[in-house]
Design a binder for these strands. Structure first.
Lengths: 341, 341
DNA sequence: TTTAATTGCGAAAACGGTTTCGTTAAAAAG
DNA sequence: CTTTTTAACGAAACCGTTTTCGCAATTAAA
């Protein structure tokens, strides 16, 4: 029971290879009678076509690549679900590549996508990525690319993002309303437009509500490992003049804030209010429950995949002109409750 | 800048196709001088080989498949990290397929792995899977298969598991020590050996410590959707004669228990103690922090992948005889604290 | 100096499909 | 009855590599 191919079937049925191939593809050139014979034989012999032979000839791999920094992250795993859901419905296969936030690795992975391995690429860039030549190489091979969540600015292709700037603004506004006087923003990267937009929106939000917005100590860089970030956050919240609120620009930072506060005995929201950009499902049952700005992760993945398939399926479709913003949602919980009101 | 292939390079260099191919593969048949010429041209023309042509000829895809129920789950996403880490080091590509716990889908996905698409398969079966004919088909094509975390019992191949039975026992023991009188076990499937072993260990643990172990109402089936499980759990904990402790056999169930208790105002651990088989990273900052039996998810994925590659790389390796148990660890936290001691 | 081995390369046959382009026989049109 | 169309199929080229084999020129052995 193995490796029965089209040639073997042709031999057994005493017909030509091309007839078998056409019958399997339900070509009009083949009579119903012959088709039935072939289909029956295929079933009986448990035939399944070699995907790579087909890819080679048709120059279509029926495969897409998803390149992202990390899979052990609620946002990304939900986005993958969204991507998979449309890939599955289209009969496409999904290669997943993890950059672990390393630019050099991302570059290698992007190179892996060339030469026909995949028909399209969905990518969320690493936080180190500061140049786009690897992406340009890919694009020069006419492989459609769609950014999701994390884009490279000025690279000319489709992107599916959330309203980062606006949400940064909303975050500031929310904290101001909760009577915070010294909120700070924790950013995960100086390169990622996503982080920068959130940070800029945050500063603008502060200014709009009559607070100083623009002091460099209002934006704190946390670009290291989890444990490095933990140390830095611990120092921050235990400093003589600590902030009274933090905005975590990404999920992983929120986690470290909570751990640092738990360890140091700092009470949330009494001493420190916490707001996080996060899709973590345990937000409502954290101690205390966490106020989040939640991204539509599944839909971001799904939409990005849909656009990618448009670009794959009809070359006439101008993938470069598409930019879609799916709004995030502020979900207020305990961690930003105004304890004095 | 596209589609320069070996033929085009040969034309430009005025040498034969086979010479180019051999030079690229550093064959001893080719002189150093010619190799340099070819390598230089490859670099200059940005040549990269067509992977599918190579796959077709060599009958090796340099690709493995990972089939699992779900990616938005801490255990599985960590396991994927482990798998990817070894795949990357071996230069393999990873196709990810999600069964969403549906047997029919799993069957289709397994079929996708035939005919040379992948060189090996890592699979964690769905909770509906009660037959293994799809896997037998795959195995009959000589494709190495390794189970990770969730096996199909009696299917003859390698598996990397954790000590489920023992941990079920330990869970029971832990709750007994905490003075629980009416603990119950929440199972996610009647088919999964993983769940059954944990449940059996749990019952045995109760018996060993002098409690009745074997009453059918000590094992509660929660095999529905998240919201169905939530309803069922809500009813359970609000019933006239509620348990005083629950063991969640999988991560998702723990989440629903917490949500139900929060909503109903049931205090953990005072009214209900909760212990969960889970790798959720937020366990220490939940309200209350969650006692877990934590699987070495990354290592399970990594080890499974290592065994798979042994099977792929040397056919002499007997993949069927391998069964590896990586122990889980009980991490005691607030949710099972004995409030009376 | 003749023979044998070695070196460096090219021609061509795979791999397993798809697709183009005949070709034949039957049906339709003239 | 001849010509044209159509239906059903087969031969062969092709996709881009890898690999086997053969061959000439050079080097080593006899």
């Amino acid at each position: 029971m193995q490796k029965v191919n089209i040639k073997e079937m042709a031999r057994q049925l005493n017909i030509s290879i091309s007839t078998v191939s056409k019958a399997l593809r339900d070509s009009h050139e083949i009579s119903e009678k012959t088709k039935r014979k072939v289909l029956e034989a295929a079933e009986r012999l448990n035939y399944s076509p070699n995907p790579y032979a087909s890819s080679l000839r048709k120059k279509k791999s029926k495969t897409i690549a998803v390149i992202l920094p990390e899979v052990a992250d609620n946002f990304f795993s939900l986005a993958i679900n969204g991507i998979q859901s449309v890939a599955e419905s289209k009969g496409y296969h999904v290669l997943i590549y993890l950059s672990h936030e390393k630019f050099e690795l991302e570059k290698t992975l992007v190179e892996d996508c060339t030469s026909g391995r995949v028909d399209g690429v969905l990518i969320s860039i690493s936080k180190e990525t500061a140049t786009d030549s690897h992406l340009q190489n890919l694009q020069s091979e006419n492989i459609p690319i769609v950014f999701f969540d994390r884009e490279f600015e000025n690279f000319d292709t489709a992107r599916v993002l959330t309203n980062d700037y606006e949400c940064g603004f909303i975050a500031a506004e929310h904290l101001v309303k909760k009577n915070c006087k010294k909120p700070v923003f924790l950013t995960a990267s100086c390169f990622l437009p996503m982080c920068n937009k959130r940070a800029n929106g945050f500063l603008e939000g502060l200014k709009t509500h009559g607070m100083e917005g623009g002091r460099s100590d209002q934006i704190i860089n946390l670009t290291g490992t989890d444990s490095e970030n933990f140390e830095q956050i611990s120092k921050l919240v235990n400093s003589p003049n600590p902030p009274d609120a933090v905005v975590a620009s990404v999920e992983k930072l929120a986690m470290q804030v909570y751990l640092a506060c738990h360890q140091s005995g700092i009470r949330i929201p009494h001493q420190l209010k916490v707001l996080a950009f996060s899709t973590v499902e345990t937000a409502p049952i954290l101690n205390p429950s966490l106020t989040t700005i939640t991204q539509p992760a599944f839909d971001i993945g799904k939409t990005a995949a849909e656009i990618l398939f448009k670009g794959i399926e009809k070359p006439s479709f101008d993938i470069k002109s598409e930019t879609i913003y799916l709004p995030s949602q502020l979900i207020e919980r305990e961690s930003t409750r105004d304890v004095n009101s």
